Amino acid sequence: MEKKLKTITFTVIENGIQTPIATRRGSYPNLMYLLKEELQLESFGECGGVGRCATCVVKTSGITGNSTLKERNEPATLSKLGFEEANIRLSCQIYITADLNDAEISILEV
């Protein structure tokens, strides 16, 4: 029997414009790659997803589960920029999972 993949849907806000996104788990390595490709963002995610450059900073609302946890280089990188809020994240450190369903992701200018 073939396993049906569930659609993951959320909203992205860039420069005040809301864009609904529908994707599936595993379609992208992480949220940064999805945002970069779907929204054609230039100068976004310049370090390639290792959590060092902070060119993929987003503000999240409605993310659940393990996707709320900051790991690896993320806390130190955000702290250097003065971001201490739990909902400010590096999109390269957020995986595409059901934790993103119904979330709102705002792209921040850094």
Rank of each mutant, 00 (worst) to 15 (best):
G82Y: 03
C47H: 05
L100M: 09
L41N: 00
S79W: 04
K80C: 12
K6C: 11
S61V: 07
I107K: 02
V12R: 08
E84V: 13
L34F: 01
K36V: 02
L39V: 08
G16S: 11
N30W: 02
R52C: 12
Y28P: 01
T77W: 05
E104K: 12
E104L: 10
K36H: 08
E85D: 11
E74P: 08
Q40P: 00
E85G: 02
E104P: 01
P75R: 09
S27M: 13
R72I: 09
I21K: 07
E109K: 10
L31D: 01
A86N: 12
L34K: 02
L31A: 04
G45A: 03
V12S: 09
E46M: 15
L41Y: 01
I88Y: 05
N66Y: 09
E46L: 15
A86Y: 03
L78T: 02
F10E: 10
L31H: 03
R25W: 00
E74W: 06
V58S: 04
N73F: 09
G16V: 05
Q18W: 00
I8F: 06
S27R: 11
L31I: 00
G16M: 06
Q93G: 04
V50I: 15
L31K: 02
E84M: 11
S67M: 10
K36P: 01
T55C: 05
I13R: 06
I13Y: 01
V57M: 11
L100N: 05
K4N: 12
S43A: 12
A76T: 10
K4W: 00
F83Y: 15
F10I: 09
V50S: 13
L34C: 03
E46C: 14
N73G: 08
S61Q: 14
P75N: 06
N30R: 03
N15R: 14
L100K: 05
E42C: 03
L31V: 04
V57K: 09
S43F: 12
T55W: 07
S43C: 09
Y95S: 15
N30P: 01
T11V: 14
L31P: 03
A103Y: 04
V50R: 11
D99A: 02
I96V: 08
G45R: 01
L69V: 14
K3R: 12
T64R: 14
S67I: 02
S67E: 14
Q18T: 10
P29C: 01
I63E: 04
V50W: 07
L35I: 03
G49T: 05
C92G: 13
S106H: 07
G49H: 06
T97K: 10
V50A: 13
G51E: 05
G45M: 04
T23L: 11
E104M: 11
I21Y: 04
G62I: 08
C53D: 07
Y28C: 07
Q40D: 15
L90G: 09
S79T: 11
S43E: 14
I94N: 03
V58C: 08
P20W: 00
K80E: 12
S91V: 02
E42Y: 05
L39T: 06
L35T: 00
P29A: 04
Y33D: 14
L90I: 09
L39R: 05
I105Q: 07
A86L: 13
E2D: 12
Y95A: 15
P20K: 12
L90T: 08
E71V: 15
M32N: 02
